[in-house]
Simulated scan of single mutants.
Amino acid sequence: MAAAIPTTEGTIPFDAPNAGKAAETWYKIVGSLDSPSPPLIALHGGPGAGHGYLASLTDLNKKYNIPIIFYDQVGCGKSTHFREKMGDTSFWTFELFYAELDNLVDSLQLREKGFYLLGQSWGGVLAGAYASGTSAVGLKKLVIASGPASIPLYVKGCQQLLSQLPEDVRKVIEDCDRRGDHESPEFEKAAAVFYGRHVCRLDPYPHDVASAFVNLKDDPTSYLTIQGPSEFVIIGSIRDWEGWQDAHKIKVETLLLNGRYDEVTDISMEPWFRHIPRVRWVTLENSSHMGHYEDRERYMEVAGRFLSGTAPE
């Protein structure tokens, strides 16, 4: 019988800028930080989706002995919530999440040994932006998984995907959009068709993936403020973001991942590829936005070999 993987959970006090109250970040370490490999910090999407839907990344510990550090970003899951900050764009900023990530790295004393970073969806946006900045001391390698380099290009890609939906579904979405109705059962049913094609093509959703939607429904504060009412209606503070403009400042080796059917289409990933100096891009042929479940074995092989430095087969 295989030995159980050591797992540690805890919370870290976090002095969130302009919070008005004490906060803390919940984290979980799968594996041992004493491993020869630098740990991989997983940045979840949403914002507000929570860490749970990235649980399959533990495969990287089992096969490549890479310790995995999960955490819930403030505003969701087991970390401090700020429901009172709905619509407060001065609070929900990139700087808030940089500060939280830096606080985690410093509290776990990872700077000297170094660490890897994998961000998925919004987490990929955050990871790319963080790696472009000056505080990413100790970062060894970066994985941007289905995280767009440009929100305007992401929206353009979504519009192309929406145009390919069945006419009756498309008309419901367009009609609801004109009326600003993004909460009715009609809109949710039509949006589910898009999600089933371009967010997760597994039916039913794996339990871990479903947990992300539970988190977002429980507390949509950060999602609605930063993004908007759905995956393809972007009216929040991030709507004009162009992360590729600073991508030339990313100094570490970077792996880009997205799926053939991904809502994060190639046109919104391509600027990362053009501007990051040391970069590789792999598109998973059998997945959409949740490649770490939809094409799990291939995803872990590509990410694991990249992070561990082992040659591809």
Rank of each mutant, 00 (worst) to 15 (best):
H275R: 04
D219Y: 03
D208G: 06
S268G: 07
S121T: 10
W281P: 03
T225H: 03
A145Q: 07
Y154S: 02
M1Q: 12
D168T: 00
S146A: 14
S237H: 03
L101H: 09
Y116E: 09
H182D: 06
C200W: 00
A311S: 12
V30S: 11
D34I: 03
F82P: 05
P185M: 12
L40H: 02
D295V: 02
I41L: 06
E100W: 00
N61H: 13
G128S: 13
Y64F: 14
V199E: 13
G50C: 08
S35K: 02
R111Y: 11
L60Q: 05
L60N: 10
K141N: 09
Q73E: 15
V169H: 04
L139A: 15
M86S: 14
H198K: 05
D88F: 06
I267W: 02
R280E: 13
W281L: 02
Y205S: 15
G259W: 07
D240P: 00
L256R: 03
E183M: 04
A303K: 01
A2G: 10
G133T: 15
D181Y: 05
P312C: 07
K249V: 04
H248P: 01
D295C: 03
Y195H: 11
W244S: 14
G20S: 08
E231D: 15
N18S: 08
I226Y: 00
P38N: 14
G309Y: 05
A136F: 02
Y64W: 12
T225A: 03
K85F: 04
R280K: 14
E100T: 03
A16Y: 02
D266T: 03
G196F: 07
Y71G: 10
S222T: 07
Q120Y: 09
S121K: 04
I12D: 14
C200D: 15
R274H: 11
I69H: 07
F82V: 05
A210N: 11
K78C: 09
H81A: 12
G119W: 09
P36V: 05
I151Q: 04
I12K: 04
H81D: 11
A23K: 00
Q73T: 13
V143N: 00
F97I: 04
L118T: 12
A145L: 00
A49G: 15
T265N: 07
C158A: 13
T254D: 07
L224P: 06
A131G: 11
L284F: 11
Q73F: 01
A42D: 05
L257S: 10
L60F: 08
L57F: 11
K63L: 04
L216Q: 13
T7A: 12
